[in-house]
């Protein structure tokens, strides 16, 4: 298994999971790290963000259904960076009702003794708390939670932390957990209050760099590029380069 398996997770939609997955993975690859990203969201937006747009390409769906090896589904998308797309049948896995606990262990088993040469495996999770997210939590040792600075995101985080603690108890493991402030609007007072609340409950766990909300981040997926490729001199590109360094060094607020 890779050195670090990180689930990028938040059951709330629109908090920047895929944006974080795309740009953090790319920034780390640019730093010379070997990175694999897994698109565990049936919407397949991570693949689109990297310019992979063929919806019929098999991916992690076939691997989890035990029909192919994970190494057969690696798509090299950039130097040092490879992608495993969602695949057209990932939604079927989300709706599995049989198999008990085993249906949550499909991804971990697929990763076992694979991708050993990788520094990082990132799992871009769907905005839900179902079978796919359970698979990510079974497989990962680390969790990165992108958070927007609004009240409902705090409410969602509360629910998700309950789920994570439950997993920790049942799986008898403690996740290394980091949070990143995403889509941050510094001119809003509530942004600062949400950040203060986060720091109160997650001391030494909020990564030092805040990802500010910009129009550019909304534009670059349509060109199949990361922000570092789309507008390398922009403040968003700087944010993600800085975030990558924080992530490597464990630099927190």
């Amino acid at each position: 298994m890779a050195e670090r398996v990180v689930a990028i997770i938040n059951q709330k939609g629109g908090v920047g999971k895929t944006t974080t997955s795309t740009n953090l993975a790319y920034a780390l690859a640019r730093e010379g790290k070997k990175v694999t990203v897994i698109d565990l969201d049936p919407q397949g937006h991570l693949a689109v963000s990297f310019g992979v747009v063929n919806p019929k390409t098999n991916g992690i769906d076939g691997v989890m259904l035990d029909e192919s090896e994970i190494t057969q589904n690696l798509v090299p998308v950039r130097e040092n960076l490879q992608l495993i797309v969602a695949g057209p049948r990932l939604q079927e896995i989300e709706q599995l009702t049989e198999g008990g606990a085993k249906r949550g262990d499909l991804l971990r088993r697929a990763l076992h003794e694979n991708l050993n040469d990788q520094d990082f495996v990132f799992i871009d999770c769907p905005p839900s708390s179902g079978v796919l997210v359970a698979n990510a939590l079974f497989a990962a040792d680390e969790i990165l939670i992108p958070m927007t600075s609004d009240f409902l995101a705090l409410q969602g985080l509360s629910h998700m932390m309950g789920t994570i603690k439950r997993f920790e108890k049942v799986l008898n493991k403690k996740y290394k957990l980091f949070l990143v402030m995403s889509r941050y609007v510094s001119t809003r007072r509530i942004s600062k209050e949400v950040l203060e609340t986060m720091l109160e409950h997650f001391p030494n766990q909020v990564l030092a760099t805040v990802i500010r909300e910009t129009a550019l981040l909304a534009e670059c997926p349509s060109f199949g590029k990361s922000i570092l490729e789309y507008r390398p001199g922009s403040r968003s590109a700087r944010d993600f380069r800085s975030l990558a360094k924080d992530f490597l060094q464990g630099k927190v607020m």
Binding site: L154, L157, S158, R189, E193, H201
Partner: peptide, 12 residues
């Protein structure tokens, strides 16, 4: 405060 209550208080 602009946050009526803290949903994460249970964690403490």
């Amino acid at each position: 405060s602009l946050i009526g209550f803290d949903p994460l208080a249970w964690m403490s």
